[in-house]
């Protein structure tokens, strides 16, 4: 079976995978990083969002083998020890989660949004930029608030 090596949350990992193994399967099943979730099979819900070389992508639509040599950050790699990433804190502070299943993807996507769009995000921008992430619990109200607050907090961090 083909071999793949990548950096995940700062750690070098490798494994043997079938060619058809998706990045999300590699993360969840081989590395037991189960914070990255799978909520659909049509590349729409965004529950599986991770960062590959600093860019937000849907890990259900990327082959593990395509990540050879890449640098991956998952939800588990955001906090520095006990210190949460500002976007994580913002989701809790603004009650941006209920069941929590879409949350890791939301947070990873929100950070990517800030990386692309900056720290001062108006409501319209946040709502538009969340197009690739679906939540069924919150009506998005508090997610939008959380992303705005988290974006502002990232500036100081």
């Amino acid at each position: 079976m083909p071999q793949v090596t990548m950096q995940v949350n700062g750690r070098s990992v490798s494994g043997e995978v079938e060619a058809r193994t998706l990045l999300v399967q590699f993360l969840r099943e081989h590395l037991e990083l189960t914070g990255t979730h799978v909520g659909c099979d049509t590349t729409q819900c965004g529950c599986c969002t991770v960062h590959v070389d600093g860019v937000g992508i849907k890990s259900c639509t990327m082959l593990a083998l395509a990540c050879e040599g890449a640098n991956i950050t998952t939800i588990e790699g955001l906090a520095k020890g006990d210190v949460l990433h500002p976007m994580q804190s913002a989701f809790s502070e603004h009650h941006g989660l209920q069941c929590g299943f879409c949350t890791p993807g939301m947070i990873m996507s929100a950070i990517d949004m800030v990386n692309r769009k900056g720290h001062a995000l108006d409501e319209t921008t946040v709502r538009k930029e969340l197009e690739g992430n679906i939540c069924r619990c919150t009506g998005y109200h508090n997610i939008v608030k959380a992303v705005q607050a988290g974006a502002a907090a990232m500036k100081g961090a």
Partner: peptide
């Protein structure tokens, strides 16, 4: 009150069935 369950869910340590 902010939720007690949030910490595990925002850090990827939730325990859903497929986990």
């Amino acid at each position: 009150l902010r939720r007690k369950e949030d910490l595990r869910l925002i850090t990827g340590r939730g325990e859903f069935t497929d986990d």
